[in-house]
Design a protein around this nucleic acid. Structure first.
Lengths: 348, 348
DNA sequence: CAGGTGAATTAAAACGTGTCAATCCTGTCC
DNA sequence: GGACAGGATTGACACGTTTTAATTCACCTG
């Protein structure tokens, strides 16, 4: 039982020391290097800790250490389940190491990203896993100069000279989707892209083009690109109109969306117009978010190992934190095509 | 431009003071109470801050203050979009106040909840918004004793004598769903519940029962309850078998799920068996997650004001932090039935 | 001009921890 | 019995802030 007077005066390492009849330094040793302290005193200290219900003060710790024991995770959209899966992976690995994760949401806005990075600097975060809003690295380099190291997630175009990074091979992903569509007999495909300045969108398109070329089909003539402002279902739904523009005659045989949310929006938009996949056209997504297996028909999509992505990023960060002679590393995962009901062979 | 020697030695308030030819205290005043310092010196200090690229150290701040400037948000399942919407609300309000949000995930496990609360105590968090794993309040009371105040979210059964709380009226929600089903001519309904020790599940069932009674239908005879271990789509899908058990003759006319994820799983499970809503039976969910509008048919569901829930919780917490003579408050939102395609009138 | 007023600034003392050199102690060896 | 080794423990300081009481200074008043 804890005594009654410790309610208002928070108990610190000194109180514990006093109670155990020992110096504060010894208590600190019990906490951090138990092997250096004799069995008997260690027990006495531990008992005092329990009696007083002492809990360590991480402000003090990190002030002394010069850095805190939490890492930042900056995501583009906390609402998107792709990111929350990544977050789970990051969190699990960090938790094993006793690091807390501060989740920050840039909402795809560079002002918010800047604010978040500043916050991490103020907290002297041990490190960060970052999915940057755009290609502008100045804020990130500033953060590194404040001696907060970071690992890039989902941005494959940045070289190992700048930072560690974890990503999925977007070119291969686009290509897998393309080959699948071609194998079903589709040639005229619309690519529903997000903002064109997102590297992922461009690279996946590159993969799609490569697949067509490989099959002897001219990409320039057969691929139509539609850009949306954001990567969510609303924009996908809205885009359907444009996809179908030109009448049934010029309608594409397939739509490849750069993101499942867009694809799900497209499926809905089709339904509202009395059309459906794969009957009227095939639809392919990207990410394999949880819901994609739940719609009817199931969404054919390019799966990313989201959870593993998070784990790998955090592990890379850890190695940068612990390792002395650190070399930046690039980890690349292979995407995997998941075929469900939203794609089918072309009707003759 | 920042000079070259500040790369390794992190710059503190003292360096700024030296540069501006002023005492550290004055720098602190410039940062925290600019009105107390003369215009001219203020400008000199601000210039020094810019020149040195000074960023304040929150470890030092919170050590001195005795509490940090971040608040915890403990959710049951970071993967569930219900919680991420809440998180957005919390984050937005916290951000306005300059508070950082540490997102913690208990994954519905009480051991993880305990670990998270301990972490918050160690960080001397300013406060927390908590969705507790179960009815056991001991860990939470311990946290309060460590002088970390918290606000309950989504747990309507806890009185204002214990804590502030924000919730949606679950009884009314269950009732709305029940009335809707009755108005469609359904009497024999299966309630797909989560774990029975979750208060939300029980209260919603109570509302459903009340609706039947109101219509002169005996709940005991007409409602069948099936419990699942967790509140996700997999378990919903699995439960379909049990829902249908007894053959077409004894099949319920409707299924009311305590959560959209379960309901979406049910829709999928039906589809796999060649059945569908609302043709073979009506399905109602709860929460109105984003995705429920995207499936076909759209899921009829009881909507909760998720974002607002988060905002309200954070506001309550703020008032507890700032206000001196604080009285616990209960905020209750009204749920709203959203009718989509998954429910329809009974076929004769 | 002495005395007083009030604004602007400063010096010093915390806050709780970790580290490191110095000290204490116990037992061993010659 | 004295010196020594080496493990266990201690004391003191530093980390970067904020705050309070004290000090300085310019100016005004009687």
């Amino acid at each position: 039982m804890s005594s009654t007077e410790d309610v208002h005066r928070p108990v610190g390492i000194n109180d514990v020391a006093a109670r155990a009849g020992v110096s504060p330094g010894t208590v600190s040793n019990v906490l951090n290097r138990p092997e250096r302290v004799a069995e008997s005193t260690r027990r006495r200290v531990e008992e005092a800790i329990r009696d007083l219900d002492y809990v360590r003060n991480s402000s003090g710790r990190s002030l002394r250490a010069g850095r805190s024991d939490s890492v930042g995770l900056l995501v583009l959209d906390i609402t998107n389940s792709f990111f929350t899966e990544v977050a789970r992976g990051v969190e699990d690995v960090a938790g094993e190491e006793g690091l807390a994760v501060v989740l920050l949401n840039s909402a795809e806005r560079s002002a918010r990203q800047q604010r978040s990075l500043r916050l991490l600097a103020e907290q002297r975060a041990a490190g960060a896993v970052v999915m940057p809003v755009d290609g502008d690295m100045t804020d990130l380099l500033w953060l590194r100069k404040q001696s907060v190291p970071w690992v890039l997630l989902d941005r494959g175009d940045v070289g190992a000279d700048i930072a560690c990074s974890v990503a999925v091979d977007n070119h291969a992903g686009g290509m897998a989707a393309g080959r699948h569509l071609i194998s079903l007999g589709h040639e005229r495909v619309t690519y529903l892209s997000g903002p064109a300045d997102m590297e992922q969108c461009r690279t996946r398109l590159g993969g799609l083009r490569a697949a067509l070329e490989e099959a002897g089909i001219d990409p320039d003539e057969n691929i139509r690109v539609i850009e949306t402002e954001q990567l969510n279902a609303e924009y996908g739904e809205k885009a359907v109109e444009e996809v179908l523009a030109g009448g049934p005659k010029r309608r594409p045989q397939a739509v490849f969306c750069t993101n499942d949310q867009l694809a799900l929006g497209v499926l809905k938009g089709l339904g509202e117009r009395g059309l459906s996949a794969p009957g009227d056209l095939s639809v392919v997504g990207y990410d394999d978010v949880h819901f994609s297996a739940l719609v009817h028909p199931g969404l054919t999509t390019v799966a990313q190992p989201k959870y593993e992505l998070g784990r790998a990023a955090m592990r890379l960060l850890l190695s940068e934190l612990n390792g002395s002679g650190h070399q930046h590393e690039r980890v690349r995962f292979a995407p995997e095509l998941v075929v469900r009901g939203s794609t089918a062979a072309r009707r003759q």
